[in-house]
């Protein structure tokens, strides 16, 4: 069963902005799925259509087999949403916000109270339950929205940039929390600008740009498509020019730092042999981080260049 199936989805806003130009997307039940794209790519619009916060211009969406044109309420029952922007009533108490949301999903009051306690505890907000939401810090507000999205125990959890503005420690704990929920059977879709986040959490990834899906595959396959890696070599002594390394692209970023791009399958011995014979001593080496981010940038740029150049 597909948790989410989107076909030919288009959206033109009233002001004429074409936000989606035909999105096709399938997310299997149980998956942990990343939707990645630069600002304005159409991620929030796509989610908005799924949640019926945005009316679509064309195409179809179904959630666990419930088409949103025919069985909207059934479809909505299956989803919990953590929106990109804060959308609770700042003047309501933390507890009230969560327990009422359960009510809006039809959870009877007593069960709603139990669930509210469980999720507020899990998100470390139980101690703040009597405070008005406005008094929470930014990270707590995000966690409040996560608790609110989970209180009806949805089969599909959609998070639109859940860790924006959240510190590293809390982000890590959110990650492990999301992994647990996913392991317990909840399908998760998240959008993020932190590619490290997608890589560490998700099994499948779609990259969206300009309202189109430009890559949609397993995380491993997408990483494999990244046919090169970059290494940063710290040199013991300063050099003035990048050494000759035939077969590799090498550049000096400063006089102690050499960056080398290595194709997949290409060995590193040759590099060290040549550096040794040139009398250059390597003090240390590290893999350049955010490989996926680079891939992502390249995918987006290549498309732009191809479209612009032809």
């Amino acid at each position: 069963m597909q948790a989410l199936a989107i076909r030919g989805l288009t959206k033109t806003y009233r002001n004429g902005v074409v936000a989606l130009r035909g999105i096709d997307l399938e997310v299997a039940e149980g998956d942990f799925f990343a939707l990645l794209g630069p600002n304005g790519a159409g991620k929030t619009t796509t989610i908005g259509v799924v949640m019926s916060l945005v009316t679509k211009s064309g195409g179809s969406v179904s959630v666990f087999g419930h088409d949103i044109d025919r069985e909207l309420d059934r479809a909505k029952s299956c989803i919990g949403l953590v929106p990109q922007e804060i959308n609770f009533n700042n003047f309501e108490k933390v507890y009230t916000i969560v327990v009422n949301q359960a009510g809006f999903y039809g959870i009877p009051r007593r069960l709603a109270r139990e669930r509210t306690e469980r999720y507020l505890r899990q998100l470390q907000l139980w101690d703040r339950r009597h405070e008005i939401a406005r008094a929470l810090s930014g990270g707590m507000k995000r966690r409040l929205m996560i608790a609110r999205a989970l209180v009806h125990e949805p089969r599909l959890l959609i998070l639109d940039e859940p860790t924006a503005g959240v510190d590293i420690e809390i982000r890590r704990s959110m990650w492990s929390f999301l992994r647990e929920i996913n392991a317990a059977g909840t399908t998760i879709i998240l959008t993020t600008h932190y590619l490290e986040e997608a890589e560490s959490l998700c099994r499948h990834i779609a990259i969206i740009d300009g309202g189109r899906i430009i890559e949609n595959d397993s995380m491993a396959a997408v990483i494999r498509k990244l046919h090169q890696e970059s290494f940063v070599l710290n040199l013991r002594h300063p050099v003035t020019a990048a050494p000759q390394l035939p077969g590799y692209a090498a550049r000096l970023t400063d006089d102690h730092t050499l960056e080398v791009d290595v194709a997949r399958g290409q060995g590193l011995n040759d590099i060290f042999a040549r550096l040794t014979s040139a009398g250059i001593e390597v003090a240390s080496m590290r893999n350049k981080v955010n490989r996926l981010e680079e891939l992502f940038m390249r995918l987006v740029e290549n498309r732009g260049a191809a479209a612009g150049g032809s």
């Binding site: 949640m51 019926s52 989803i79 929106p83 922007e85 809006f104």
Partner: peptide
């Protein structure tokens, strides 16, 4: 209007309520 303005109308719009 306050719910629209503060966006918490979305709490109702995403829920399975006609």
């Amino acid at each position: 209007f306050g719910a629209k303005f503060g966006k918490h109308i979305e709490e109702l719009l995403v829920a399975p309520l006609p």
